[in-house]
């Protein structure tokens, strides 16, 4: 029984959950407005975009790949979709999603093609395409902001479920963007766990040669992984437009590493083959809670990066020490007494 409890505690998800609870209780004791429905729903809304991005990053990471171009892909999708919807296509929110997913998938496939065809390190390719996508977009748009965004995109973030009314008359509740995030998370979780294509991503990340030997087409899988990564970036793009209702060319650039850090903190292995949707969600939420706590505790937001960096370093150091212990205990030879 004791052993079982220890086993559960060793799981990354449980550990993250406990850390989140501990931080929440601490902040709650200092600032009672923390554990309120209003605050929590706001925190969730604030991290929904990163949450959606992280799902794509998770899939790529599990496959043993690496992607820093997803934000650039989202940025390109934002521009292209809004431009199309304003000038060329009578649309609604579904068409917007379809277009964004299309654009995202195409750019993702371009990544996948380069990585697979030229057998290049994913980090090099995606740094290149990140600059390429972003640069071309900036040149074409000349960095103009688009203030005029189709109004039918707004409800996605303003609509709420389980809404309640605050004392000052403002309505609050779980935003549909958050619902979108969780719905997508469930789909990705089902995909990763219960479909053969999803499982084959774990196979590829765990042992690419062995995966080939049991009949997995690595080229197809690589294209699929980066295609999905791009598609999810496209979805995040629409969600992002809906929240800020403007297209700002550099509003989310630079958040790549934060998202990747959240995924890693959530237990995904940078070498591939390991990672879970639940862990990723918890990783994203942990970062969001820290950010929120700083505000509530009236600590300068400059401290955010210090905490995040500290947590990342602490978690990987603990992990490394655990591994070292394990390898020390390994029995190599059965020595007679």
């Amino acid at each position: 029984m004791k052993k079982q409890i220890l086993e559960v505690l060793k799981k990354r998800e449980m550990l993250l959950f406990l850390i989140i609870v501990a931080i929440s209780l601490f902040v709650q004791s200092k600032s009672p407005s923390f554990l309120t429905y209003e605050n929590i729903s706001n925190v969730l809304k604030a991290c929904s975009i990163v949450g959606i991005f992280s799902l794509g990053v998770l899939i790529v990471t599990i496959s043993g790949g690496f992607d820093v171009s997803f934000v650039a892909i989202a940025q390109v999708s934002e521009y292209l979709v809004v431009w199309l919807l304003l000038r060329h296509i009578q649309g609604n929110i579904y068409i917007a999603f379809t277009l964004a997913i299309l654009v995202g998938t195409l750019l993702g496939l371009f990544n996948g093609f380069l990585i697979d065809h030229y057998k290049m390190p994913a980090i090099i390719i995606t740094i290149s395409t990140q600059n390429l996508f972003y640069g071309i977009m900036y040149v074409i748009t000349e960095g103009r902001l688009l203030y005029e965004v189709p109004q039918y995109l707004a409800p996605l973030s303003t609509n709420k479920i389980f809404s309640a009314v605050a004392a000052n008359g403002a309505e609050y509740g779980i935003s549909t963007v958050t619902v979108l995030w969780f719905a997508l998370a469930i789909i990705v979780a089902i995909f990763l766990r219960y479909t053969i294509s999803g499982r084959s991503i774990y196979l590829m990340g765990g042992n690419s040669l062995a995966a080939q030997r049991i009949g997995i087409n690595i080229t197809k899988s690589t294209l699929m992984v980066y295609g999905i990564g791009g598609a999810i970036a496209g979805i995040a793009a629409i969600a992002h437009i809906s929240i800020i209702m403007t297209v700002i060319p550099n509003s989310i650039v630079g958040t790549e590493m934060d998202t990747i850090a959240a995924v890693i903190l959530g237990g995904a292995s940078i070498t591939g083959g390991v990672g879970s949707v639940l862990g990723t969600i918890l990783g994203v939420i942990l970062f969001a809670i820290i950010n929120n706590s700083l505000t509530l505790l009236q600590i300068s937001s400059s401290w955010y990066n210090v905490f995040i960096g500290g947590i990342i370093l602490a978690s990987i150091i603990i992990n490394a020490l655990q591994l070292k212990q394990q390898s020390k205990r390994k029995v190599r030879v059965k020595v007679e007494a």
């Binding site: 219960y194 479909t195 053969i196 294509s197 999803g198 499982r199 084959s200 774990y202 196979l203 990340g205 765990g206 042992n207 040669l209 062995a210 995966a211 030997r213 049991i214 009949g215 997995i216 292995s269 083959g273 390991v274």
Partner: peptide
């Protein structure tokens, strides 16, 4: 010689995934 297995997955998955991949079903 290198066994070509998946150290990150469970025993059950290692045993059955080969058959599953062959089956070309959508769900596992």
């Amino acid at each position: 010689q290198d066994l070509s297995l998946f150290p990150n997955l469970t025993v059950l998955e290692n045993i059955c995934l080969c058959d599953q991949v062959k089956s070309k079903n959508f769900f596992i």
